[in-house]
Structure formats: structure tokens, C-alpha cells
Design a protein around this nucleic acid. Structure first.
Lengths: 203, 203, 203, 203
DNA sequence: GATGAATGAGAATTCATTCAT
DNA sequence: GATGAATGAATTCTCATTCAT
């Protein structure tokens, strides 16, 4: 494929990601994606076969991007506590910088995860062992609590981070404040770190 | 309004709640709601004026129901720790018994909270002081950590509980297990309680 | 259903029959049918669910109409030769008066008969015994050839009659004449009768 | 034109014939033809200018092929009865071996014969005199019935043969059997021969 | 000759809402 | 209060054909 086609495909993917994140799979309009990508609608079907397939591709790219970034944070360190803190921070900042990701994931969760089921497993099968290794090493070094359940704590970290972004419009009502103002996000991250670390660290 | 009319209205509300929870405001079909409620579509407009207004009504009823139940849990007790634990449990079990609520709330969050903005504030204005009072009493009694930020901890409790349900289809992929099996829900609740209490209680 | 709805349904069926006969299932346009029926396209889906279902309904009505007419011709007579001649004439004139029928049947044949398979069997199961009874009686009375194969002769009668109409535009080229001019149709019917009777009658 | 180009053209024609026969002019998709021919769609336009022109070419080739084969059967014999029988058999077996032909012809008939009008006349102008010569000789030798109408009998032979193939999916429903099973085709041919000969032969 | 990218005009189907009774 | 009929504007997807190289 030459540069022209590659560009078109990329423009479609970028536009689709934006619009799927904003409105969800069913709320997104193919016409809107095509217009935003500045391509003829027909090309979208040429490259991606259907709206659903395009959505699956966007989802896959997003999961890959997330793990690319987050996995970097845990490399080249051998202190499990630092690794875990860095992973949480990295995930939180990734979500902040890539607001499409948490939204895509939450639409997908509400729609039953049928597309995630297709594209997430291979990524998670690479990611989970790395994350559990950190926890296991922390336990064996006596830094992490012995009875720590990696499934539970990883789940909590994930939902605490991601909800800070996906629930922002509800939190704005409850807080009577904008939860995504930089200082509010910083406070939120600090709270998440303190909350989770108290549960993770031995004594 | 006579009993018959009242029944029709209730059937519409029940059907609408189910379908809005399943598919969201935009995914829900007025025809489907009317059919499920076994009424003529025209009646829906008679009682609720529009699909959006019906949705707002469903949302309002759900917020009210949630607070009715949750507020009960904190009554008639004067031990802040017990009150908070009971409130968390009560919220968690409410979400379990009323699966439409977490889904409605999350669709609403993704859609920008514009309907929540209309119906949630009066309920929250009644609820928040009660919750903060528990925290404040815990602090003044020395049972709760002095630097506890009620906004942060309430937010965390809320998202930890609600995500256990709204993210279940994603968690099912990651866990390779069904997160809503009774024993998994119990474990999840225990984890949430231990996670939050460690952060709340003064050493 | 009141008269209004009944009228709309009938108008849709009439328009659809005309257009399906002219252009086939795939060539027909729903917009064209709706416009010809002077209804809103949406109503077509309201009454018939889909273009394909409408087509199946048109097909069924046509098969029924054909057998209604043709079966009349064989009633109240007890001379098998006369009955058969009357049946052939009746079928031929039915095809002449209802030009949609032979076309619908031929489109359907080319498309694999998948809709005919759904609607034709019950009609044919009523029709075939009546037709075979005539042939059997002719045989037992010694009027019809003993070795007459009812399947073969009925097939030949059917295709000779129907092709006179469905192949008319090809025959027009070969004959350098219009095969559907009244006198040409009369000659054709005579020929079909003489051809088949010579094969049917015992010497 | 070199061999490669010739191959491409032939592949296009072969693919087009198959697909036009299966789906008709309007049902066929240029993309599908190009893919089946393993050529770039643009080449199809290079060689044939348009879908319709390609269709006309396919139709012409098929008419020519049919007459090439059928005319062979009547050569080198001077017995009119044998010649006619051989012509019928030859036509029937040609249709059996070339199932695209009867289908193409029938789609074309339903669409008004506008393309056949362009390509059939020269072929028919060569074929008809040969066929009529056989009949005339049969008449003058006293073997064929004196009042035989060549137009009618040729038409009947044509539609009896061709309908055995084009109506097969309808006949399968009526017969509750597969009309194109070899023994069924043989029986059908025998029937057509006996039917027509009884009408053709003197006494 | 050969190719992948691109297009505008339509295709079937869906939807929230209103009308007439 | 209750109902079936009706609608216009969208929505996903398709197609024959042409462009640029």
C-alpha cells in the first residue's frame, strides 16, 4: 500500500477513534466518520469492510497502545514497589493523555464486551504475567502483603484510574467542581496511590 | 388518575428502565419499550411527552430508589465505622439487586451527564451531608484518619462498587471467570471493604 | 384492520406484483413500489416486514390465484379429454390475462425457487391430485394412452404455455413478428393443444 | 494482442459468463467478475468498455457456440427425420453441457431481449434456413406432416428443451425430485422426442 | 497493459413522533 | 384514555465507473 492509501486508512482510524469514543459504536455515524476523515464513505468500507470491523480495529489499536505505554513503565527497574507505583502513574497519565481509551472501554463494557473478547485476550495474555511478576516479586521480597490477591488489586487499580475519567461528568455534579482540572487529577492520583499502597505494602 | 392508568404508567416505566439500562438512551427503541409495556406507543407520549423525558424520569426514580435504600443503612446507629461499612455493603448489594442502576448511571456518564444534571442534585444535596456527617463524626471520635478527604474516599467507594457491575464483561475476559458469580461478588466486596477501611481508619 | 389499512395493503401488493414481475425480486426497488402504491415506504415495512417477505406474499397470492382459476375449468365435467383441453386453455388464458404470473414464476426459477419452495407446495399438493385424477380417468376409460407419464405431460403443458409469454421477446426476434398479437396467441394455443393431444390420446 | 492479454480477455469472458448466467445482467457485480477473472477491474473496462458491453459479448459468444454445436448435428445426413432428431438431441445435450446458455437466454428474455436483438439476428439468419430446409425436405419426401408449421414446431422444441433446465428449481418442487439427475434428463429427452415426433411425422 | 484509490448516486431498512378516530 | 396508520429524515451499506500513476 502506498503512502496515499496509508494516509487515508490512518485518517479513517483517527476519526473513527474520536467518534466511537465520543458516541459509542451505535451512536457513531459512518457519515460523520467519513466526513471527519475527509474521505469518501465508500473507502471506509473498502478498507474496513464494515462499521463494526472498523470499531474492532480501533479497539484493538487502543488496547495495544495502552499496553505499549504502560509496559514501558515497569521495565528496567527491579524494585517492585517502584515498579507498581510507576505502572499506576503511567496508566493514569495514559488515560489522561488518551481520553478516547477509557471511554471506548466503557462503551464496550456496557455493550457486553463482545468486541473486546476478540481483540483483548492476546494483549492481556502478554500483560498479565508481567504485572503478576511484579506482585509476586514484591511478596517474595517481603515488601508486599502476603495475602495480596493480584486479581482483586489489579481490578481495583484499573477501575479507580479509569473511572476518574469515565465518570467525570457525574463527579462534576457531585463535586460541584471539574474533576479533570489538573490539580484535581493530581489529587485524585495521589489518593489512588495512597489507597492502594496501604493495601499492598506489608504492614 | 385511576388504577388502570396508573398501571400503564408503571408498566411503561418498568419497561423503559429495563431497556434504557440495557441499551442506553440512544440505543433504546420507543417501539420496543411500548411493546414490552404492552401499551400503545401513543400512550407513552401521552404520559411522558418524549423519549428523552421518559428517560429523565427513569433516571430520577433510580437515583431516588438508590438513596432510599442506602440511607436506611446509616440510620439508627451511632458507630461511624459500622455506619460506613453498612453504607458500603448496602450500596454494593443495592447495585447487585438493581442491575439497571449502575448501567443507567454509566450510560449517563458517557453521554455527559446532561440528564443526571437535572435530577441528581436535589437527591445528592440530601445525601451528601448525611455521608459527610458520618465521616466527620468518625474523625472527631478519632476512629477515622484525620486527613481523610471525604470527596476522594466517597468517590473511590462509589466507583469501586459500581465498576464491579458495569465492567463485568471486561473483567470476565481478564479474569477468565464470571465476576458476578455469588462467591466472586462476595470476594470483591470484602476486598473493597478491606481496601477502603485500611485507608479510612486511624491506624 | 379497517378499510384504510386494508386499502394500503392491497395497493402495496398490487404495486409490488407489477414491479416484481417487471424487474424481478432484486431488480425491483422498494422506493418504486412505495411510490406506485402511493404510500410511505415505512408502511411497506410495517405491513410486510421486508422486501423479501413482500415478494413471498406476492408470489403466494399469484400461485393461489392461478389455481383458483385453473381448477374451475376442470369442475363439473366428466369427460377427461374435455377436462384436459379446458384446463390447458384455462391455464393459457390465465397466463395471457395475468402476465405478471409467468414472469414472476420465471424470475423465481432463475433465482433458485427459494421463495416458491415456501409457498408453492401446499397449493400444488391440492392441485396435483386433481390433475392426475383427470389423467387416470382418461386412461381407465381408454381415451388416453396407457403409457402416459403424468409428470412429463404436465411439465410439457406447463412449459409450452408459460414460455409462450416469458420468451416472447426472444421469439419476436426469431419470428420477426409479435408473438403476443391475438391471432398469434390463438395459433400458438392451437399448436400446443394439437401437439399435446396427439401425445395423450390413445391412437 | 499477445498471449497474456488474450488470456486476460478470455478469463474475463469466462468469469462474466458464469456470473451473468448465475445472477443475470443486473444481479452480476463487476467486482465479482473481476475477482473471479483474477484481473484488475480497470482491465475489464479497458477490454469491454462497460458492464453492458461485456454482457452483450458474452451473449453473442453463447449464441454462436450454441449454433456451432447444433448445426454440426444436421450435417452429412440426408434423412430429414434423423436430422431433426439429431438436432433436438444435440440442442438438449448442448444445454445440459452448457448450463450458462439457457440461463443467459432466459434472463435476457425477461429483460426484454434488448441485447439479444443486437447479437442474435445474424446467427439466426444463418440457422433458420438450415432448419427449415430439413423440415421442407421432410415434407416433400412425405415423411413429415404436410401442414407442419415450422415456426410453431421449432418454438415448441426450443422451449421444451430449454425449460427442462431453466425451470429445474420449480420442477424440483413439483416433482419432489431432482429434474437434472441423469436418468430424469434422459426420460425428459425421450418424452420431448416422442411428443414432437408424433406431431411431425406423417400419420 | 496494469493497478489500487476514489466517487456520487442510490439501495434497503429504521426511527421518533404525529394524525385521525 | 386508547389505538393503528402514517411520515420524513436518517442510517448502513453498495455499485458502476473513473482517476492518477
Amino acid at each position: 500500500m502506498d503512502g496515499l492509501a496509508h494516509d487515508s486508512k490512518q485518517r479513517i482510524l483517527a476519526a473513527a477513534e474520536e467518534i466511537f469514543a465520543t458516541k459509542g459504536l451505535h451512536g457513531a455515524r459512518v457519515d460523520e466518520i467519513a466526513e471527519k476523515a475527509q474521505i469518501n464513505k465508500r473507502m471506509l468500507y473498502h478498507y474496513f469492510h464494515s462499521k463494526n470491523d472498523l470499531y474492532a480495529e480501533v479497539l484493538k489499536i487502543n488496547f495495544e497502545r495502552m499496553w505499549d505505554v504502560t509496559s514501558q513503565a515497569t521495565r528496567d527497574r527491579n524494585n517492585p514497589q517502584v515498579q507498581l507505583v510507576e505502572a499506576i502513574k503511567s496508566y493514569f497519565y495514559f488515560l489522561k493523555e488518551n481520553p478516547n481509551f477509557p471511554r471506548l472501554m466503557t462503551w464496550e463494557a456496557l455493550e457486553g464486551g463482545i468486541y473486546a473478547k476478540k481483540v483483548l485476550p492476546p494483549i492481556w495474555d502478554a500483560a498479565f504475567p508481567q504485572l503478576r511478576a511484579i506482585i509476586d516479586e514484591g511478596k517474595s521480597k517481603g515488601v508486599f502483603r502476603d495475602d495480596l490477591d493480584s486479581r482483586q488489586i489489579l481490578t481495583s487499580i484499573h477501575v479507580l484510574c479509569i473511572s476518574s475519567f469515565t465518570q467525570k461528568d457525574i463527579l462534576a455534579i457531585l463535586w460541584k467542581d471539574n474533576p479533570t482540572r489538573p490539580e484535581n487529577l493530581e489529587k485524585r492520583l495521589e489518593h489512588i496511590l495512597s489507597l492502594t499502597l496501604r493495601s499492598i505494602l506489608a504492614n
